[in-house]
């Protein structure tokens, strides 16, 4: 059922993909957030938040409900006007760009919103074609074939192209949304709760899909998630958001060692123990080198 070849990240230790290194992005930091402040009325969401996303890594962002994970994501991609602080993506301050520069920058990232956010009036194939149609001059036939390839990349058959998003299941919509996010070959991918609301099998498949694609395409990925399995299996680094700032960011072991009460409760609760145990089992079972070790 899953058309993807077995992932090879285990045999291929992660390395920063220097292949696609272009301008900007000093010292391998793709996204640099400094002193971010977000406030809704009297409620302060972020107070002096700092965050780095390194080139080629998969960063998982966790935090309690209402801790401002999605707001942080929206601040980075420019959907949320923040009160103060700076956000640099590929070394460019997103608030100091001309409209043309901003448009060029936006083509270098892809965003997967919760539940795909496909345009309901367009067929799935047309949805994936949207970035290609708007920003590139391609013959219609080729555009269609590229869309078909992207859908195949995320494990969808070509017959979903003619369907409307409403006719797809949640998991398929998520995959189609990923195909649209990948349509213009971005270097940076933002995923907002990619596995929430999926059954464990679909969620696990989506996890391995993200991991496989990130390695094969040399992507930098930031994903917001609640899913402990996703965190443990997919992410290279984990950033924990609490009290309006990133309280710890690092490998799984570094985060586990943190003794902030929220982190302790989150990573040492019963569900976390189960997920950790199964993660440890699969890691040894597959005879894979422990990335964190």
């Amino acid at each position: 059922m899953n058309p993807l070849p077995p992932t090879e990240q285990a045999t291929r230790p992660h390395e920063p993909a220097s292949v696609r290194d272009t301008e900007g992005g000093k010292s391998g930091i793709v996204v640099r957030v400094r002193g971010l402040v977000n406030r809704f009325g009297a409620q302060v969401v972020h107070r002096n938040l700092d965050l780095d996303i390194r080139r080629g890594e998969i960063l998982g962002l966790v935090g309690g409900s209402g801790s401002g994970k999605s707001v942080l994501l929206r601040s980075i991609i420019g959907l949320q006007k923040f009160e103060s602080g700076t956000v640099e993506v590929f070394g460019q301050n997103i608030n100091r760009l001309s409209p043309e520069e901003a448009e060029r920058l936006r083509r270098r990232w892809g965003v997967l919103f919760q539940d795909g956010a496909l345009f309901s009036a367009l067929r799935v194939g047309e949805n994936v074609e949207v970035p290609l149609r708007e920003f590139y001059r391609l013959p219609a036939r080729m555009r269609c074939e590229l869309a078909c390839m992207k859908l195949a990349m995320v494990g969808l058959d070509s017959d979903v192209m003619c369907k409307y998003p409403a006719e797809l299941s949640g998991g398929m919509r998520r995959r189609a949304g990923l195909a649209r996010a990948l349509a213009s070959d971005p270097e940076l991918l933002f995923l907002d709760e990619p596995t929430s609301g999926l059954d464990p099998i679909s969620a696990a498949r989506f996890d391995s899909l993200i991991q496989h694609l990130a390695r094969a395409l040399g992507l930098t990925v930031m994903l917001v998630t609640h899913d402990l399995d996703t965190l443990f299996t997919v992410c290279d680094r984990i950033a924990v958001l609490a009290d309006g700032r990133v309280i710890v960011a690092g490998s799984l072991n570094e985060v586990l060692a943190c003794d902030h009460p929220w982190v302790r409760e989150y990573f040492h609760g019963p569900r976390a123990h189960l997920a950790l145990a199964s993660h440890a089992r699969t890691a040894t079972g597959d005879d894979a080198p422990d990335r964190e070790g």
Binding site: P5, A17, V19, R141, C144, E145, C148, M149, A152, M153, S158, D159, M161, C162, L213, R215, A216, L217, G218
Partner: peptide, 22 residues
């Protein structure tokens, strides 16, 4: 072919692109 690009080619390979007819 560099290591990274081999992955790209593998992704693109063996995908029978059959664009369904409307």
């Amino acid at each position: 072919l560099g290591e990274e690009w081999r992955h790209l080619l593998e992704l693109a390979r063996h995908r029978p692109v059959t664009v369904p007819e409307m």
